[in-house]
């Protein structure tokens, strides 16, 4: 659906935001672009949508070059920006209708109504944007992007600064769109969001695409967790009854660390077995906590792998 070839962008100050990016987005998938702040996620999206001129390389959308055939390419794209931007004094209905007209589509109140209803904005259609909460405003931006019936939807950090309930709702909306056949590209720096939503995940770091992989494969690779058991009494060695669990003794015998893969059903269910054995041995556990490899760890490990 979208093909990015050899894309580079160097800003006027000399900052290179994108370095020779190659990327292919498949029709109908949800693609998550994962990366820390400042990695180039927004720049990449902006170049594809025509907001930023590339320094080198090219982008095609459904086969249309986004510079030479920009009308056709852009007509296919809906963009939901990261910042909540809006003309404060217009109503929800007017601003969404405006977006449709701006993209050259004739008026279609029935479609606008469908979009507003699907985003639970219908009740608010006559409200001015400044009366809406942040979450509602974000939905309005999504409605605007959907007003012209795009085939590709870009969501730039759709859930940044959004509370948990609303985040779940957003995810639901995105899934519905995918079911309608819309290709979705979202950027995020929350790994759980990528995990929850995406079919494929691309990791971007310092303007370079570090890897692109099927979500399940990536999660298996990166989903290592550690369970740390803090003990009341220090141990000299792992008790023999527990050796089968592959535990490591740390913190001068005060803690037992159990590594497992959260993505694997089998391994995570073995935790209950471990706990039962602890009980049987009579070890008193003061505290326990689990730790998942964070996005930061993932980047570190990715970069080390490449080096």
């Amino acid at each position: 659906m979208i093909r990015v070839e050899g894309l580079s962008k160097t800003f006027r100050g000399g900052f290179q935001a994108l370095v020779d990016v190659d990327l292919e987005i498949r029709r109908g998938e949800i693609f998550a672009l994962l990366g820390p702040n400042g990695a180039g996620k927004t720049t990449l999206i902006s170049v594809i949508c025509g907001l930023v001129n590339p320094s080198a390389g090219r982008v095609t959308v459904d086969g249309y070059d986004n510079l030479r055939e920009y009308r056709k390419a852009r007509a296919l794209i809906g963009l939901v920006p990261q910042e909540l931007t809006s003309e404060a004094f217009t109503t929800v209905w007017d601003t969404v209708s405006f977006s449709r007209g701006l993209f050259g589509k004739p008026k279609d109140p029935a479609h606008i109504e469908r979009v507003l209803r699907s985003l639970t904005l219908w009740e608010k259609r006559d409200n001015r944007l400044l009366q809406l909460s942040g979450g509602m405003k974000r939905r309005v931006l999504i409605a605007k992007a959907l007003a012209h019936e795009p085939q590709v939807l870009f969501l730039d950090e759709p859930t940044a600064g959004v509370d948990v309930a609303l985040r779940r709702e957003m995810w639901e909306v995105v899934r519905q769109l995918r079911d309608q056949g819309v290709t979705i590209i979202l950027t995020t720096h929350y790994i759980e969001e990528a995990e929850e939503m995406a079919d494929r995940i691309g990791v971007i770091r310092r303007g370079e695409i570090v890897l692109v992989e099927n979500k399940h494969a990536l999660m298996r690779k990166l989903g290592n967790k550690e369970l740390t058991l803090h003990l009341h009494e220090p141990l000299d060695a792992v008790p023999t009854a527990l050796t089968g669990h592959g535990l490591a003794l740390t913190d001068e015998g005060h803690a037992l660390v159990y590594s497992y893969n959260a993505a694997s059903q089998e391994e995570s269910s073995s935790i209950s077995g471990l706990l039962a054995d602890l009980e049987a041995v009579g070890l008193r556990v003061k505290d326990l906590h689990t730790r998942q490899s964070s996005l930061e760890d993932i980047f570190v490990s990715l970069v080390q792998e490449r080096a």
Partner: peptide, 18 residues
């Protein structure tokens, strides 16, 4: 100026308009 200031100019720039 106002859409540039508020950021909503993105929509104009990404629209299929010359």
């Amino acid at each position: 100026f106002f859409p540039r200031f508020s950021g909503s100019v993105y929509e104009i720039l990404s629209a299929p308009m010359s």
